[in-house]
Amino acid sequence: MKEARQTDFADRLKTAAEARQVLLAGFRAKPAVAAPDAPDRAARRAAELQQVRADRAAARAAKKQAAADRELAAAQAVEAVAAAQLDARRGERKERKALTKAEAKAKRDARYAARKARQ
């Protein structure tokens, strides 16, 4: 039995090397275990990013709509001024025509009165 317990130098070196390897294995980096909330965090971040992008797109759309509304209002104002000027010119023309008609009627009446006076 004593012989079974006796080990030679090579066996002792091998045992010491194995013990060192076991100790070093404790210090080695272990494979990363994904935390259970890591995918949730990534999904939450992706959702936040998507929300920010949507907000920015909405802001851009609102800004573009405001610019279009301003352009439309300016065009309508120009159109309203042009329509007012046209109405003013039409009104002046109608007044001139009415005066011309009144003058023509007055002339006709004067001729008629002169003819009646001669008779």
Rank of each mutant, 00 (worst) to 15 (best):
R20W: 08
D87L: 09
A10Q: 01
R115L: 07
K105M: 09
A104T: 08
A110N: 04
A47L: 09
A10G: 01
A98W: 05
T100W: 12
V33L: 13
A68C: 00
A59S: 11
R41Y: 03
R53P: 01
E103Q: 15
R12Q: 09
P31H: 04
R108D: 07
A80R: 11
A88S: 09
D8E: 06
A17S: 08
R111D: 10
A17W: 02
Y112K: 14
Q119A: 08
E71R: 06
K101M: 13
A4T: 05
A62I: 02
R60I: 05
A35P: 00
E48I: 09
D8H: 00
K64Y: 03
A80C: 09
R118G: 01
F9Y: 10
R118V: 00
E103D: 14
D109C: 07
A54N: 06
A84R: 08
G91C: 06
E71D: 14
T7E: 15
M1F: 15
K30F: 00
A43Q: 14
A73W: 01
E95P: 03
A66G: 03
G91R: 07
A102I: 08
K97M: 15
L99Q: 14
K2W: 09
P36W: 06
K107F: 09
R53H: 11
K94S: 11
A98N: 08
A61N: 05
A46R: 07
R111F: 13
L86T: 11
K105H: 05
E95D: 15
A35Q: 15
E79S: 14
R28D: 12
L99P: 04
R93L: 10
A16Y: 03
E79T: 06
A106W: 07
D69K: 00
K14Q: 03
R45C: 11
A82N: 07
L24I: 04
A16E: 02
E95C: 03
A67Q: 10
R41V: 04
E79I: 02
A75T: 04
K64R: 12
A43N: 14
R45G: 01
A113C: 03
A68W: 04
A110K: 05
E95W: 07
D40S: 14
Q119P: 02
A59P: 01
A42R: 08
A59M: 09
R111N: 12
E103I: 10
Q21R: 15
A42M: 11
K30L: 07
A25K: 13
A67P: 02
K63G: 01
A68P: 01
P39M: 00
L72G: 06
A42Y: 05
A83L: 09
A117E: 11
Q50G: 03
R12S: 03
A19E: 10
A17V: 06
L72T: 06
R93N: 13
A110G: 01
A43S: 12
E103F: 12
V52A: 15
R45E: 15
A74R: 02
Q65M: 02
A74Q: 07
R93W: 07
A25Q: 13
P39I: 04
A77D: 07
A117D: 12
E95H: 02
D40L: 14
Y112D: 12
R93E: 14
K30W: 01
E48Y: 08
Q21N: 14
A4G: 10
K64Q: 13
R44E: 04
R56P: 00
A80K: 10
K101Y: 12
K2F: 11
L13F: 00
M1Q: 11
D37C: 02
F9N: 09
A38E: 15
L72C: 09
R5A: 10
A102C: 07
G26P: 04
